[in-house]
């Protein structure tokens, strides 16, 4: 199998590391090689967080710039921060709900226009899926499953050699049992969004 490199970025507390972990564990369970890097400590307090996952044969979990096969952003600004790792075939899955950094709340800096951020993503990557993960999560009745919506969408892009079923199996082992059902639901919907999005491109 050809390996794959994934970057997942977001804001501390959004579940970036857990999502990366589920992806890596699912790959390992399939017998693919998997490694990931996570940064603990300060950044977990609502700061920018990035985790990288590499599937297949790799010497380091770190992803080289311009070589991410997939990028998942839990927050638009954080997605754009990862652009140096994208190239013309990268698949990007991004949430569309901004979370303002403190400097923006204090009026010291401005949050970039969402349209501009979206343009930049589309400009550089092969395929970009904008997904209202938070709204979907709320519709399921649990705000905390937005990360599973995004993970589902990532799997739905087929950018990685991991089938939905493997992720479902791994996910339930890594979330509290109470949250298993809404997380699976979120995963499925996210997957569907990506698949549907693919059709609309194909039939456009």
């Amino acid at each position: 199998m050809k390996g794959a490199s994934v970057l997942i970025g977001g804001v501390g507390g959004q579940g970036v590391i857990l999502t990366a972990r589920i992806l890596a564990e699912a790959a390992l369970a399939l017998g693919l090689g998997a490694q990931m890097s996570e940064i603990h400590g300060m950044s977990q307090r609502y700061g920018s967080v990035v985790s990288s996952v590499r599937l297949g044969k790799a010497e380091t979990p770190l992803v080289k710039r311009g070589e991410a096969d997939a990028i998942v952003g839990f927050e638009p600004l954080e997605t754009v921060r990862l652009l140096p790792w994208a190239y013309r075939k990268t698949v990007i899955v991004t949430s569309i709900t901004p979370i303002r950094p403190l400097s923006v709340s204090l009026g010291q800096e401005a949050y970039p226009l969402l349209e501009d951020l979206h343009e930049r993503l589309k400009d550089r990557a092969g395929r970009v899926i904008f997904i209202d993960a938070d709204r979907i999560a709320r519709s399921i009745g649990s705000e905390v499953v937005a990360n599973s919506v995004l993970l589902g969408a990532l799997i739905g892009t087929k950018a990685l050699p991991i089938p939905l079923d493997s992720v479902r199996k791994t996910l339930v082992k890594h979330v509290p049992s109470k949250l298993a059902a809404p997380n699976l639901e979120a995963l499925d919907i996210g997957y569907g969004v990506a698949i549907q999005d693919g059709y609309s491109i194909a039939f456009a």
Partner: peptide, 20 residues
């Protein structure tokens, strides 16, 4: 290193950690 092209990045607001 051919893929490490300099991406022209906009100036993005930083997101340092904050107290909960």
């Amino acid at each position: 290193v051919k893929r490490i092209r300099d991406v022209k990045m906009p100036k993005l607001p930083a997101r340092p950690p904050v107290l909960c």
